[in-house]
Amino acid sequence: MSACRANRRQRSRRRTTVPVIGAALAALVLSACGSGGTSGGGGETQFVQGKGGVDVVKARSARQEAPELSGKTLQGEQLNATEKFKGKVIVFNVWGSWCPPCRAEAKGFGKVAREYKAKGVEFVGLNTRDPNPAPAKAFERENDVPYPSLFDSAGNLILRFPKGSLNPQAIPSTVFIDREGKIAARAIKPMSEDELRETLDPLVAEK
């Protein structure tokens, strides 16, 4: 009987451990709809923590390669963003239609995206935690979003960012990729138009 009880206890531990680990991982990787957070990454990132929560890797040689981000957009079209926009500065914005800070920054993102397109800058959204595209598409219409968003409900694309890099860790988060396809900056908070411009201008100026 003692062996049976031990086996039952062992099975019980296995059943409870998996969801606990999954929940902890989800909470660590993506803080739900926060307006800020703690900068992540290790010493190898060599980033400078900027004022206002925008972290920047100034030395181009110290920047890490960005992952391939591809999949279906909210409109159902296939998009390999890192390949299509290769050689351009890319701004990846993590957002959800259910997230108030995402709504607060959306119109400013659209304005800056239009303003910087002629300067070789492309914006791409990473829509996450929306169970289906319908509310996210309504969000885009309401906020006149001019750029595509990859539908990433489960957050799989976000997890492609390498461990220890300036990876997105909150919703909203914004990651800036330089023309060489490397991670140059990150914000884990809502960004204003001025903050977007201040982060983009040095990257646009790089030759």
Results as ranks from 00 to 15, higher is better:
162 P>K: 05
41 G>N: 11
114 R>G: 15
24 A>S: 10
59 A>E: 12
173 S>H: 01
176 F>K: 04
119 K>I: 01
60 R>P: 15
147 Y>N: 12
24 A>E: 11
31 S>I: 14
88 K>Q: 13
143 N>Y: 15
87 G>F: 02
149 S>C: 08
179 R>H: 03
205 A>F: 02
37 G>Q: 10
187 A>E: 10
187 A>R: 07
81 A>H: 07
37 G>W: 08
7 N>C: 10
42 G>Y: 06
134 A>D: 15
145 V>F: 03
37 G>S: 12
121 V>K: 10
51 K>R: 05
98 W>S: 00
161 F>T: 12
191 M>A: 01
73 T>C: 04
150 L>S: 06
58 K>H: 05
154 A>T: 11
136 A>G: 10
113 A>L: 03
45 T>A: 04
125 G>T: 12
145 V>H: 08
182 K>I: 11
178 D>P: 09
117 K>E: 15
94 V>E: 05
98 W>C: 00
198 E>K: 12
68 E>W: 01
147 Y>A: 06
174 T>H: 05
120 G>H: 09
55 D>L: 01
152 D>A: 00
197 R>I: 05
168 P>R: 07
13 R>P: 00
137 K>H: 04
13 R>S: 01
84 K>R: 09
116 Y>L: 12
33 C>Y: 09
83 E>C: 00
156 N>K: 09
93 N>M: 06
142 E>I: 01
13 R>G: 01
150 L>F: 04
38 T>R: 14
110 G>L: 01
163 K>Q: 13
86 K>P: 07
195 E>T: 01
10 Q>S: 13
123 F>A: 12
160 R>S: 07
6 A>P: 07
19 P>A: 00
188 I>D: 15
62 A>D: 14
70 S>N: 07
87 G>I: 10
43 G>C: 01
26 A>S: 15
38 T>D: 13
121 V>S: 12
120 G>M: 03
80 N>K: 04
63 R>D: 05
162 P>T: 12
34 G>T: 15
127 N>S: 04
79 L>V: 08
